[in-house]
Simulated assay, not measured.
Amino acid sequence: MLGLPDGIRACLFDMDGVVTKTAVVHAAAWKEMFDGFLREWSAKNGTPFAPFESADYEQYVDGKPRLEGTKSFLESRGISLPEGSEDDPPGASTIHGLSNRKNELVLAVLKRDGVEVYEGSRRYIEAVRAAGLRTAVVSSSANTEAVLDAGGVAALFDVRVDALVAKKLGLHGKPAPDTFLEAARMLGFAAAEATVFEDALVGVAAGRAGNFGYVVGVDRVGQADALRSHGADIVVQDLGELL
């Protein structure tokens, strides 16, 4: 049923790249923020400018909480910055400052262009709910509620576990399975009774680490093999393929 094994009672969906077409917005925002910082860093330190690439996005930031993504990429370049604080101005040379700049860029694009939902995902989630399965959205974004509301799909989810919930409960971000496990717990099911739907490598890894009943990789950018190697049981290009 619905391309899922017997015994599955809950479906846990990542948001960006699985439900909404916002992964490309995040990737572009990360690139603009990091490239601006790296140009200044190179000029200040007399080193060649090496831009932020799509491979950097996939390996270091995709699917991770914002601060962790910032730290991870900077560490890959051997750059150490102070943590700073949540109220650092966007663009300040701190982990928080750069992260705030990235969020500022994302919010500007969402306000200007709105939010588009993958139609195949909408149809699949509606079918899941019609079949009596429970649903949750599990995202590393702090803007999850606003994005779902803007896309008109907030009502499709019984539970929301996002960056705000993770911070409140002290949950580790992906690739740790904590947020998915919390979503399953809130729905009242064991991990073995739930399926994880993810497009990010760290998200698929989180699904596998949590011993969930099934892990569906959603390949939007041509990384099917990598999704499988990180733990996806099946890889589709669109959730509509499972109907």
Rank of each mutant, 00 (worst) to 15 (best):
L164N: 14
D62C: 10
V165A: 11
V216D: 09
Y118K: 00
A127Y: 10
N211H: 10
A131Y: 01
A209F: 09
K102R: 09
E116W: 05
S139V: 13
D225S: 13
E126D: 09
A184N: 08
F197Q: 05
S140R: 03
G63C: 03
N45L: 13
G240W: 00
I95W: 00
T179R: 05
Q237L: 06
T70V: 15
E53C: 00
E182H: 11
A43D: 14
E241L: 01
T144M: 02
G151E: 02
S121Y: 06
A27Y: 07
F34E: 11
K64T: 13
N45K: 12
H172M: 14
A142D: 14
K21E: 15
A28P: 00
G91W: 07
T22C: 02
K174T: 06
G97K: 04
R134K: 13
A192I: 11
P82L: 09
V25K: 02
E116L: 11
R220K: 12
P48N: 13
E126P: 05
M15Q: 01
D62Q: 15
K111H: 13
L107N: 14
L67N: 07
D158Y: 09
G151I: 02
K168S: 11
A142P: 14
P90N: 04
I234T: 10
A209S: 15
G91D: 09
F189L: 03
S93F: 07
L242A: 08
L181W: 06
S121L: 00
Y214V: 00
A209D: 11
D158E: 11
V138C: 00
S139L: 10
M33I: 02
V138D: 02
Y124K: 07
G7A: 03
R122N: 01
K167Y: 07
E58S: 15
F73G: 12
R185P: 03
W41H: 12
V218R: 06
P65E: 02
P51I: 01
R66L: 15
M15E: 05
R123F: 10
V24G: 01
G222A: 03
S76A: 15
N211T: 08
S121A: 15
E86T: 14
A176G: 10
R66N: 07
V137P: 00
P65M: 05
A176K: 13
E193R: 09
E119R: 11
D14C: 12
G217M: 06
D56M: 04
T47E: 10
G213A: 09
K64Q: 15
T179F: 04
K168Q: 12
A205D: 07
R122P: 00
E83L: 15
D199C: 00
P82K: 07
L81P: 02
D233W: 03
L2P: 01
D35Y: 03
V196H: 01
D56L: 01
